[in-house]
Design a protein around this nucleic acid. Structure first.
Length: 685
DNA sequence: TTACTTTGAGTTTTT
DNA sequence: CTCAAAGTAA
């Protein structure tokens, strides 16, 4: 029973009565054990696993907790618990309710937003300020959805000065954006939560208790979703000092006002730290004391024995820092997976990774974003997406843009042509096209003036007869498109063949394999490799091309591996969107941003690049309240360490010729003696 | 409308 | 340095 392993204060929390329970769990106090214990307690009290909802910050965290529950009970019981991120759970529920939604990669819908934005004119408005750019407006809107329940027109001018004159145009863009998404069934991450909230308002969900991990990072949208679910019992676990997602609308007010919101609230505080040694903890506490306290912090160190002091490492040069740390890691007796290098900005990762590679030290880096951003991965997933959702015009366009002579405009017309030929179904349009003289009605009226009704002229089918394709294909009405050249026709032919073979398959892995070995995909990656190997003078470096091809193939292998874990194509594709960012590549030393390190622990930790401007990020910290958030980031970083903690900074970047001052947190940690530099840094916030 | 060239802007963190 | 936007030729 998981409860027997808990200490008295954890046990008290785990056995809390049903109701509104808040558990303040500082770093390393056994938060996960307490949640697992709580689930165990609920199950022992006769609550069905299906009636438990566990919301976590990452899907990995959810999987780990479910795994631990499985260890105490059975896999079958654990699997029936509804667990995952807010987004993943919402997605599953909306699917269960048969809502017609297609989850798209965030960047995709941003492109859609941009195309809607570009139809608008701004210059006729005599405003002093420049309008926000399309990308920026999209991000502002997305933050708005997460951060507040106010009207956009109220919220935006408060945050962006001088933007009132544009607000009507912005509202119109947003309206069309929402309408277009609805029309295609596309949803993004925010929509999942919003739609789920609407469902929760309409119908009572079957949960007896909702457990929320990392409650301090809940934003207004997530908060309103929980309110809408209105479960009979809440079990919220968090730590004020670890709130680091303000940029995503996280609001520490939500955890701070829990007892005001629920007058019957019970608060449990876990005070015993099992993770870190005393010197590490006291360093962390010294720094976080500089933030205003909401709850008093009274951490007790449990661990005794060897107590190595945290070490400050100072370097003259940035590269020297990376090099020396790589050497220290090489000489360390700590197993590599128990070592982490933690930094504020992803930019730090490249330097340290290169140095580790040089010394043959394997390392593991969160490769999620960059992996799925790669064009070759996108192309493969777009093809797969199209098989799962044949209505996805964006995926179709992305694929067909690779064909020579076909751009986004023609690709769109081809898609619409196929849909017309298939009487609403693109796939049917490919395989069983309706007899139709010309699927491109709109075009005939204003383009090339109907020339292509004559068999030998442009747009007629017979002009491709010499390419040697079978008669049935040559007769396909889609080939009547006047803009097509023989390259385009060949591409269409190969794609049709691929689509036919994919239609036979069900297993995602088999589908991915077919895609990767297809002529269409081969053609796409050939183009990508050539582009990457093209030198400034326009020549193609064959060696470079080979290398590019090699990298592309490696990603393909990974994609096949990823696909093996799923038994339907739809599940696979959506898991890639929902959990794609969590996937990491490689084995060995962990390279992590502070944000990514949340919830993890390591024997030996290096927090690097602790320079003013980088950490804290000066551009951000100068804004009100954000130096506190940077300080919490520092707190999260150092509290990852169990035994050994190294903090490092470099005085100079010789590549960019920048001189650095040490981070103010090093002074606050009393690793540096407060001097004029510190006084100067303080004035900057 | 596409394909290619040049210019220019930007580099925080994530589901 | 990378990548997107803008410009330009066909």
């Amino acid at each position: 029973m998981p409860l027997s392993r808990l200490n008295p204060e954890q046990l008290q929390a785990a056995k809390a009565p049903f109701g509104h329970n808040l558990i303040i769990a500082s770093a390393g106090t056994g938060k996960t054990s307490t949640i697992v214990g709580r689930i165990g307690y609920l199950l022992s009290q006769g609550v069905n696993p299906e009636e438990i909802l566990l919301l976590t910050f990452t899907n990995k965290a959810a999987a780990e907790m479910v795994e631990r529950v499985a260890g105490y009970f059975s896999r079958d019981v654990a699997k029936r618990i509804e667990a995952g991120t807010f987004h993943a759970v919402s997605y599953r529920w909306l699917k269960k309710l048969k809502r017609p939604i297609i989850l798209k990669q965030p960047g995709e819908l941003k492109t859609l937003f941009r195309s809607i934005y570009e139809k608008r004119q701004f210059h006729h408005i005599g405003a002093e300020a420049q309008p926000l750019s399309a990308n920026f407006l999209h991000d502002v809107y997305s933050l708005y959805q997460n951060a507040t329940l106010e009207d956009f027109s109220e919220w935006l001018p408060k945050r962006h000065e001088g933007q009132e004159p544009f607000i009507d145009i912005y509202l119109d863009i947003v309206r069309e954006f929402e309408e277009t998404k609805k029309e295609f069934g596309f949803v993004n991450f925010n929509d999942l939560l919003i739609l789920m909230r609407d469902e929760a308002k309409r119908t009572k969900l079957p949960f007896k208790e909702v457990l929320i991990d990392e409650y301090q990072d809940t934003n207004e949208l997530q908060g309103s979703l929980i309110d809408a679910m209105d479960p009979p019992s809440l079990f919220c676990v968090g730590d004020y000092d670890q709130s680091i997602y303000a940029f995503n609308g996280a609001n520490i007010h939500i955890i701070g006002s829990f007892t005001k919101k629920f007058l019957d609230a019970r608060v449990f505080t876990l005070t015993k730290n099992y993770r870190s040694t005393a010197p590490i903890l006291s360093l962390a506490n010294r720094v976080i004391e500089y933030n205003e306290r909401i709850y008093p912090k009274q951490l007790e160190v449990v661990r005794q024995g060897s107590r190595q002091m945290p070490k400050l490492l100072i370097f003259d040069n940035l590269l020297q820092q990376y090099e020396t740390i790589a050497q220290m890691i090489r000489r360390s007796t700590t197993p590599h997976p128990q070592i982490a290098v933690i930094f504020r900005n992803n930019a730090s990762a490249d330097g340290i990774e290169a140095m580790l590679r040089e010394q043959n030290i394997p390392c593991k880096r969160k490769g999620g974003r960059s992996f799925f951003d790669a064009k070759e991965v996108k192309a493969a997933l777009d093809i797969a997406t199209l098989m799962a959702n044949p209505k996805d015009m964006m995926a179709f366009i992305h694929i067909f843009e690779y064909a020579k002579g076909i751009g986004s405009a023609t690709a769109k017309e081809l898609f619409e042509g196929l849909v017309a030929l298939g009487e609403g179904s693109m796939l049917q349009g490919i395989f069983r096209p309706k007899a139709m003289t010309n699927p491109f009605k709109a075009r005939t009226t204003n383009y090339q003036l109907g020339l292509f009704d004559h068999p030998t002229q442009i747009g007629s089918v017979s002009r491709f007869a010499h390419l040697g394709f079978d008669e049935q294909f040559i007769a396909h009405p889609i080939l009547k498109h006047p803009a097509l050249n023989s390259d385009g026709v060949r591409f269409i032919h190969d794609f049709f063949k691929l689509a036919a073979s994919l239609k036979q398959k069900k297993q995602p892995q088999a589908i991915v394999r077919s895609i990767l070995s297809s002529t269409t995909y081969g053609y796409i990656i050939e183009q990508l490799a050539i582009k990457r190997a093209t030198l400034k003078n326009g020549e193609v470096d064959e060696l470079k091309k080979e290398e590019a091809m090699e990298r592309i193939k490696r990603k393909g292998v990974l994609l096949i591996q990823l696909a093996s874990a799923y038994n339907t194509l739809e599940k696979f594709i959506n898991a890639m969107v929902l959990g794609g960012g969590e996937l990491s590549e490689g084995e060995g030393v962990n390279l992590l941003t502070v944000h990514a390190s949340k919830g993890l622990e390591f024997d030996e930790v290096y927090v690097i690049d602790l320079m003013d401007g980088r950490f804290p990020n000066r551009k951000l910290a100068s804004q009100a309240g954000l130096i506190e958030e940077e300080r919490r980031l520092f707190y999260v970083a150092v509290t990852r360490a169990k035994n050994l903690l190294y903090l490092s900074y470099a005085k100079y970047d010789s590549f960019k010729d920048i001189t650095f001052f040490p981070s103010q947190f090093l002074y606050e940690a009393a690793l540096l003696k407060k001097d004029q530099t510190y006084e100067k840094l303080k004035t900057l916030c």
